[in-house]
Simulated scan of single mutants.
Amino acid sequence: MTQDDAPDADFSRRSGAAAIGARLRRLSERIDRDASRLYRETGEIFEQRWYGVVRLLAEQEAQSVGDLAAALGVSHASVSQIRDGLARAGLIAWETDTRNARLRRLRLTPEGRALAARLTPLWNALNAAAVELNAEAKDALAAIDRLEQAVARVSLYDRVRANLG
Rank of each mutant, 00 (worst) to 15 (best):
R102P: 00
L133V: 01
Y51R: 14
E95I: 04
L24A: 15
L156Y: 10
L147C: 05
E29P: 00
R37Y: 04
I144T: 11
V131K: 11
A142C: 02
A71F: 03
A17Q: 09
T96R: 15
G43A: 03
E59N: 07
I144K: 04
A162S: 12
E111T: 05
A130H: 10
D32A: 15
R99M: 05
G85C: 05
D158H: 15
A117Y: 02
I144R: 07
R102I: 02
A116M: 04
I82K: 06
G21H: 10
I92Y: 02
R88A: 14
V131R: 14
G112Q: 06
A125I: 01
A150L: 08
V74A: 06
A62V: 06
I45V: 13
Q48S: 14
R113Q: 14
D97Q: 10
G85F: 02
R105L: 15
D10E: 06
D158V: 05
A77M: 13
R146Q: 11
R146C: 02
W50H: 11
L38Y: 04
V154S: 08
A142I: 00
E95C: 01
I31T: 08
Y51H: 12
E132R: 15
A142T: 03
Q48R: 12
G90H: 02
G90P: 03
A9E: 10
N134F: 02
A19T: 09
D158K: 14
V160Y: 12
G73M: 12
V53C: 15
A58V: 01
G165C: 04
G90Y: 03
F11D: 08
A87Q: 09
A137V: 02
G21L: 11
Q149G: 06
E59G: 10
D4T: 07
T96Q: 15
D5W: 02
T109A: 03
D84P: 00
A150M: 05
E41P: 03
A129S: 12
P7M: 05
S75D: 13
V160T: 07
V151E: 14
A22Q: 14
D84R: 13
L57N: 08
A140R: 05
E148Q: 13
A17W: 12
G66C: 02
D4S: 15
H76T: 04
L156G: 13
R153P: 00
